[in-house]
C-alpha cells in the first residue's frame, strides 16, 4: 500500500547549504528564462519548473554520477541538477550554437548525456519505458547503475506508464519512477480525471512494488525517500514509485496564466516554496543567516553570468540542421 515518507535524517549543514544553492540556481535560471521570453529572446515555449526544485536536487543527490535520468518537457531542473550548465540551458532556449543541444532541441529536450541525463522527452509518458531499458542494460552489463524516470501527474493515466511499471516489476529492474505531482495535468486537476487519490503511488501496489508519497517541496525528505528507493533498486530488489507532492509557480507553459487555480491554494503552496522550507530548516539548525545569504548571492551571480554569456553567444548555424540525423553525423537518406 502507499506509504508516506518523512524526513527524519539530519544531513550535514554544508550539504543542505549546497542543495539550497542548487535550488536557487535552478529558480534563478527559470526566472531568467521567463524574463528572456518576455523580452522576446526565448522563442517557442517553456514549461518552467519553478516550485519543483527540491525534487530534482534531492533526488539527484541520492544518485551516483553514472546513474541514468530521463525527464520530461518540464525538465530544466533535472538537466541542471545533473550538471547541465545554466548557461548551456539558457543558450539552448535562446537558439544559440552553444546550447546544450546546439539549439536543435530547445526547452523541451534539454540533455546532458555525458552526465547520464539521457534526455527530456515531450510525449507524455514515453520515457518511462526507456528508463526500464537503461536499467535493463545496466543489469546486462553488470554495472549496478540505477535509472530514474521523472514525470508529471498527467503521465499516470497513459498506457506507457502502466506498461512500464509492470515490466519493471516483472524484470525486477533497478528503476525509480518519480512522479512530480503538482496537482494539475495541464489546466485540469489530476484528481478530477483519476480513479485513485494518489495517481502514481496508488498504482504501485497493482504492479507489485512500493508506492511512496513524499513532500516534494522538502529537499531533505525527497533525498531520504529517494535514497531508500535507489538503495532498493541497486540491491536488486526492484523498482519503486515515488510520488512527490509539489506545485508549479508558473502556469503549464508560457501561454498559461494558470487562472484556474484557486488563490488560496496558490498562496498556501507559495508559502511552502522549497527554498523557503530549506531556509527555515537551516535557521532551525542555527545556521547563521549570513551563510544562507552567501550561497543565495553566489547562485544569483551564477545565473546572471550565465544569462549574459548565453545572450552573447553566437546564433545557431543553419547548416547544423543537416547534422546528426545518423551516427555518421550526416543526413543522407540515399546512396
Amino acid at each position: 500500500m502507499t506509504q508516506e515518507a518523512g524526513s527524519a535524517t539530519r544531513v550535514a549543514t554544508a550539504t543542505l547549504l549546497d542543495w539550497l544553492e542548487q535550488m536557487a540556481v535552478i529558480r534563478g535560471t527559470e526566472k531568467a528564462a521567463h524574463d528572456l521570453f518576455m523580452r522576446g529572446l526565448v522563442k517557442g515555449t517553456t514549461h518552467l519548473a519553478a516550485g519543483h526544485e527540491a525534487i530534482a536536487v534531492g533526488a539527484s543527490a541520492a544518485l551516483r554520477p553514472d546513474d541514468y535520468v530521463f525527464a520530461t518537457y518540464r525538465g530544466h531542473h533535472h538537466a541542471i541538477a545533473r550538471g547541465a550548465s545554466p548557461e548551456g540551458c539558457l543558450a539552448e532556449l535562446m537558439q544559440r550554437s552553444t546550447g546544450v543541444c546546439r539549439a536543435k532541441g530547445g526547452s523541451m529536450h534539454l540533455t546532458r548525456a555525458d552526465h547520464g541525463m539521457l534526455g527530456s522527452y515531450a510525449i507524455v509518458g514515453a520515457h518511462l519505458p526507456m528508463a526500464n531499458g537503461a536499467a535493463w542494460s545496466a543489469r546486462l552489463r553488470g554495472t549496478s547503475q540505477v535509472a530514474v524516470a521523472f514525470f508529471g501527474d498527467g503521465a499516470t493515466n497513459i498506457g506507457a506508464f502502466h506498461e512500464a511499471l509492470n515490466l519493471a516489476a516483472v524484470w525486477k529492474l533497478a528503476v525509480v519512477f518519480v512522479c512530480e505531482n503538482n496537482r494539475y495535468m495541464e489546466y485540469t486537476p489530476i484528481a478530477s480525471v483519476t480513479s485513485v487519490p494518489n495517481p502514481a503511488a496508488d498504482r504501485a501496489a497493482a504492479n507489485g512494488m512500493p508506492g511512496v508519497l513524499v513532500d516534494g517541496n522538502d529537499v531533505v525528505a525527497v533525498h531520504e525517500a529517494m535514497a531508500t528507493a535507489v538503495d532498493r533498486a541497486r540491491a536488486g530488489d526492484g523498482p519503486t514509485v515515488l510520488e512527490a507532492l509539489t506545485y508549479r509557480h508558473f502556469g503549464h507553459s508560457r501561454t498559461d496564466p494558470a487562472t484556474y487555480r484557486p488563490a488560496a491554494e496558490v498562496e498556501e503552496w507559495l508559502a511552502r516554496d522549497p527554498l523557503i522550507l530549506a531556509r527555515r530548516r537551516l535557521a532551525e539548525w542555527g545556521v547563521p543567516q549570513a551563510d544562507v545569504d552567501a550561497v543565495e548571492a553566489r547562485a544569483a551571480d551564477t545565473v546572471a553570468a550565465a544569462s549574459r554569456a548565453a545572450q552573447d553567444a553566437p546564433p545557431a548555424d543553419p547548416e547544423d540542421a543537416f547534422t546528426d540525423v545518423w551516427a555518421d553525423g550526416g543526413w543522407a537518406w540515399r546512396t
Binding site: H127, P129, M130, G133, A134, W136, S137, G159, E163
Partner: peptide, 26 residues
C-alpha cells in the same frame, strides 16, 4: 534467458526498453 527475453504484450514497453538499452551500450 539473459539474451532472449520474453515480454508481456506491451508494445510500448518493448520499444522503450529497446531504446533505453540501445542508448546505454546494448
Amino acid at each position: 534467458a539473459d539474451r532472449v527475453w520474453d515480454t508481456p504484450i506491451s508494445e510500448q514497453a518493448i520499444m522503450g526498453a529497446a531504446m533505453g538499452a540501445a542508448m546505454t551500450g546494448m
